[in-house]
Amino acid sequence: MLVYPSGVDVSSSALRFLSAKLRQHRRELGTRWRRLSPGRQALITLAHLRNGHPYAQLAAGFGVGTTTAYRYVAEAVDLLAALAPTLEEAARTASRKAFILLDGTLLPIDRIAADRPFYSGKHKKHGMNVQILADPSGRLLWASPALPGAVHDVRAAREHGIVRMLTDAGIKCWADKGYRGPGGTVRIPYWGRWETLSQGQKAVNRSHAKIRALVEQAVATLKSWRLLRKLRCSTARITSLVQAVLTLYLASSDR
């Protein structure tokens, strides 16, 4: 396989953060020597997450075996996932905001038609449902564990305890019509066909749409990590990948 110099459009702070965590992890394990240094292990992990390169290509570029590349990336991903904020921690951050934004997104996966639990009727494709919490500026605060794509957004929000958390903390939340009926502090637009709504209801819906539109920035932030645009791994690994990306984003952004 031919190799060539390439780049990863990730901030150096993310590389330094992950390198430091891997260095600390190796000290705790008592590791004496490895083929790649903590910095190189961090770089191969970032290349996989950001660019979506398969392990065979990463192995060729870093001069290691494919199995070694997989093991290094999996170790770093699990380490990052363990550092991701919990819903309770996200709630404490959200409580300092005027309100938060809630939305769901589908992460496409390579599944066949027989895998119906993963098929999203809304998006007409197979994938995993991930719930997103963002601040009023559209910055990513929290991402949920992944559920099969057939799960609707409102059901996913309930299963993760998002609605209960928001209600108990008294945090106002803006969401779309996919969250109809959750109650609590979750606000959604008026339901019904546009022509049947009153002028006041139309004005409220337009204002609501302008406010919650910024949540798309948080979704775009998550999907800027190209691996998440088309996942070909086991569905059991997707939650760890999402949590790893969340940790890297929070670590490299100013808050």
Rank of each mutant, 00 (worst) to 15 (best):
N129E: 07
Q199V: 11
C173H: 07
A156Q: 01
W194R: 15
V130R: 01
Q199P: 07
V151A: 09
G138K: 06
Q199G: 11
Y179T: 06
T167F: 07
D168H: 09
G149H: 00
R187P: 00
L140T: 07
V163H: 00
H160V: 11
I171V: 14
I132E: 06
G127H: 05
R164H: 00
A146I: 04
R193L: 12
G183N: 14
G200V: 14
T185Q: 10
Y179E: 06
V186Y: 04
I162L: 10
P145I: 08
G200D: 12
T196D: 14
G170C: 08
V154C: 10
L147F: 13
S144E: 09
L141S: 03
R193Y: 05
R193K: 15
H160W: 09
V151L: 09
P148H: 08
I188M: 09
S137P: 00
N129Q: 14
L140I: 10
G138D: 06
E159G: 01
D168K: 14
Y190I: 08
K172P: 01
S144R: 04
D176W: 02
R164Y: 01
I162M: 04
M128F: 02
I171N: 10
I171A: 09
P189N: 11
D135S: 01
Y179I: 02
P148N: 14
D176V: 02
L140Y: 09
D168V: 12
R158V: 03
I188Q: 06
W194K: 15
R155Q: 15
A157W: 03
L166T: 11
G200C: 05
H126Q: 08
G192M: 08
G127V: 00
A169D: 04
G183H: 14
D168E: 15
L141N: 03
T167D: 12
R180W: 02
R139M: 13
D153G: 03
S137Q: 12
I162W: 04
A169P: 01
A169R: 15
I171M: 12
Q201E: 15
S198I: 07
R187Q: 13
A175T: 07
E195D: 13
G138F: 03
H152V: 08
I132F: 00
R164Q: 07
M128Q: 10
H152N: 15
A157V: 03
Y190M: 13
S137N: 07
R164L: 00
Y190P: 03
W142Q: 05
D168A: 14
A175Q: 00
E195W: 07
G149A: 10
Q201V: 09
V130G: 05
P148D: 14
P145H: 13
S137D: 13
D176G: 01
R193P: 00
V130K: 04
W191Y: 11
P136L: 10
M128L: 12
R139E: 12
N129L: 09
I132Q: 05
W174Y: 15
V186A: 07
L147M: 13
R180A: 02
G184A: 10
D176T: 03
T185C: 05
P189R: 08
K177G: 03
L197N: 05
H152E: 13
Q131A: 05
Y179Q: 03
K172V: 10
V154D: 06
A175G: 10
M165N: 01
V154S: 10
L133G: 05
L141C: 06
L140Q: 09
V154A: 15
P148W: 11
G192N: 13
N129S: 08
P148T: 13
